[in-house]
Computed example of a mutant assay.
Amino acid sequence: MPDRRIEGYVIVSADGMLANAAHVMPDELKFEGDKQFFNAALDRADLILHGRHSHEDQPNSPRRRRIILTRRITAIAPDPSNRKATLWNPAAASFEAACDFAGVHSGTIAIIGGPAVFAMFMDRYDTFWLSQAPHVRLPDGEPCFPGVPARSPQQILAAHGLKAGEARILDSANDVSVTPWRRVGQISP
């Protein structure tokens, strides 16, 4: 298999939500330090992968090569509205085939959501970067992973063989931090 690193990225509220009840990331979950961390990570990635309702909405977004998961196509196709994007139906084609179609045979692949997309890669992440906003609560919001809030995001990551590394503060005024969860037995970069 080609040398591909799979990394996940999400910021969650204290209750493990990535969006509000309307499935929109609210302003209270947006912090400058986390935005800078996320943007820098995506600038380094060779490929971004997300569902059709997820996007990073940043100045560099149109320049990034990406795979968009959708059930609206047969298997794999170019995105007619974005020459840097590949559309992928995971029910009809493998992840490796989608990466090959996108022209990414090695490097870092950044998974940015939503919940079903994150779940597809739970047993394949090399690192999952979990940002947390401990003072934000989103009642009836959209959980970051299937199984939240019955289990915390941390419990779900641990159940899939990932182990927390040292947290880094991204916004000290709001106690926002990011923790790398790495596959057990891997050497950290």
Rank of each mutant, 00 (worst) to 15 (best):
I111R: 02
E32Q: 14
G8V: 01
R168H: 08
G51I: 08
L69W: 10
R44D: 15
A164V: 02
T86R: 05
P139V: 01
P115V: 14
G147F: 07
L69K: 06
I76L: 12
T74C: 13
G16D: 07
A41Q: 13
V117H: 01
A158R: 10
T74R: 15
I11G: 00
D43G: 06
H105Y: 12
D27R: 14
P180V: 02
M25N: 06
S81R: 15
I111H: 05
P78L: 10
G107I: 03
P78R: 13
L42A: 08
R183D: 10
T108C: 11
R66S: 10
R65G: 02
G161T: 04
N174D: 07
P59R: 00
C144Q: 00
F101G: 04
A40M: 09
M122R: 14
C144V: 13
D171H: 03
S177I: 09
H55P: 11
A14W: 01
E32G: 09
A119W: 09
I48C: 07
G114Y: 09
A116T: 15
A97I: 11
K30P: 09
W181V: 00
I156Y: 01
M1T: 13
A119M: 10
F95G: 11
F95N: 10
A167V: 00
R183F: 06
M122Y: 12
V117P: 04
A40C: 06
I169M: 11
R183A: 07
P143G: 05
S54M: 12
L170V: 01
A45Y: 01
V178C: 00
A97W: 08
A75Y: 12
M122W: 13
G147W: 08
L138M: 01
V10I: 09
P139Y: 00
V104A: 04
M120Q: 14
V24L: 12
D175T: 01
C144L: 04
V10D: 06
V148R: 02
Q36Y: 12
V117Y: 02
V104C: 08
R137I: 09
R66F: 06
A77V: 10
S94N: 10
Q58C: 14
V24T: 12
D140F: 02
H23Y: 12
G165V: 01
A41W: 08
I67E: 02
V24C: 11
N39S: 14
R83F: 13
H55N: 12
L162G: 00
Q132N: 06
D27M: 11
N39G: 13
D171C: 04
A22K: 15
E32F: 09
H105F: 09
I111S: 09
V24Y: 11
Q36M: 13
P78C: 11
P153E: 07
I48R: 05
A110V: 04
A159V: 07
E56M: 10
D43H: 08
P59M: 05
R4W: 08
I156D: 05
P146R: 03
I169Q: 08
P153D: 07
E56D: 12
M25S: 04
G141L: 00
P90K: 10
F128I: 06
P78K: 09
Q154W: 04
